[in-house]
């Protein structure tokens, strides 16, 4: 199977100083990951497992120590390659409060990617912004607002809208719903499903909440200490986990369906 976006044998070591001496810290050790067109892949693991580092490498925010990233089957190597990749693969960050420039109106924040990548004539920009706000379920008036005038859920929609402005093929979402209230979280999850079905988006969905990953993704990878310890179709991994760590992670999820089933 060829993926839209693929990471092959990614290794990342950071040099940290411990007691004054440089020290190698292996954050990611030999991880391969791919996402097919229209597929939602869940990447789960606890903090420090390296899931964010892998995803940042896949979009070029971080450089891998070794290993390759391929896009549409071609290795991404030169600056021009990365630039092309960043036009079609977008990243949605965890914290909707720090991801938006506080002094920029929402409309300008959404227009910026179009202008940077020279995607359309200047005259069409406002129209596209309005359309995108509607796509993510926000009122077009939001374009005139500042980030601090929006709620957390609204800001996360704006971030999603900004990532979608360039009509990307793939989206990397790093814990994008973990800070949201459940009823808002459900709204954003529904929106993601709708976008995937309607636009055929590929999604890498990073989360520590296995309940959300179970709901959203068709395939799941479990990371622990920089390694992928288990992967497979979501149903198989959740219903019949093979690795001890996956089992421990599943057992730790607070879940009322399980507690109620146990009490019955």
């Amino acid at each position: 199977m060829t993926g839209v976006l693929e990471a092959r044998n990614i290794v990342k070591t950071f040099i940290v100083r411990r007691e004054g001496k440089p020290h190698e810290l292996r954050a990611v050790g030999d991880v391969s990951l791919s996402v097919a067109p229209g597929e939602i892949v869940g990447l789960v693991g606890e903090s420090g497992s390296g899931k964010t580092t892998v995803s940042r490498i896949m979009i070029g925010i971080e450089r891998a120590t070794s290993g390759t990233v391929t896009y549409n089957g071609k290795p991404v190597e030169t600056r021009a390659d990365w630039r092309a990749l960043r036009r079609s693969v977008q990243y949605v960050f965890q914290d909707p409060f720090t991801a938006l420039c506080p002094t920029m109106r929402i409309g300008d924040a959404l227009a910026e990617p179009l202008i940077i990548h020279n995607m359309c004539p200047r005259g069409e920009v406002p129209g596209r912004v309005t359309k995108m706000l509607e796509t993510v379920g926000l009122h077009p008036d939001v374009a005139r607002r500042m980030p601090n005038q929006l709620s957390g859920g609204q800001r996360q929609r704006v971030n999603l809208a900004r990532a979608l402005m360039l009509e990307p093929k793939a989206l990397i979402c790093d814990e994008i719903v973990s800070g949201l209230d459940v009823s808002i979280q459900a709204q954003v999850l529904r929106l993601l499903v709708e976008l995937q079905e309607r636009l055929g988006l590929s999604l890498i969905f990073i989360s520590h909440d296995l309940r959300i990953v179970r709901y959203l993704s068709s395939r799941v990878l479990v990371m622990y200490l920089g390694q992928i310890v288990e992967q497979g179709p979501t149903e198989a991994v959740f219903d019949n986990p093979q690795h001890d760590y996956t089992r421990a992670l599943l057992a730790a999820i607070p879940d009322h369906s399980r507690v109620l089933a146990g009490a019955a």
Partner: peptide, 21 residues
């Protein structure tokens, strides 16, 4: 009811979509 319908559990799947309030 609304809270329970919008909260995913380990049993939830897209055949039974979450219903946000």
């Amino acid at each position: 009811h609304g809270l329970l319908r919008s909260a995913p559990t380990l049993k939830s799947s897209r055949t039974n979509p979450l219903q946000p309030i």
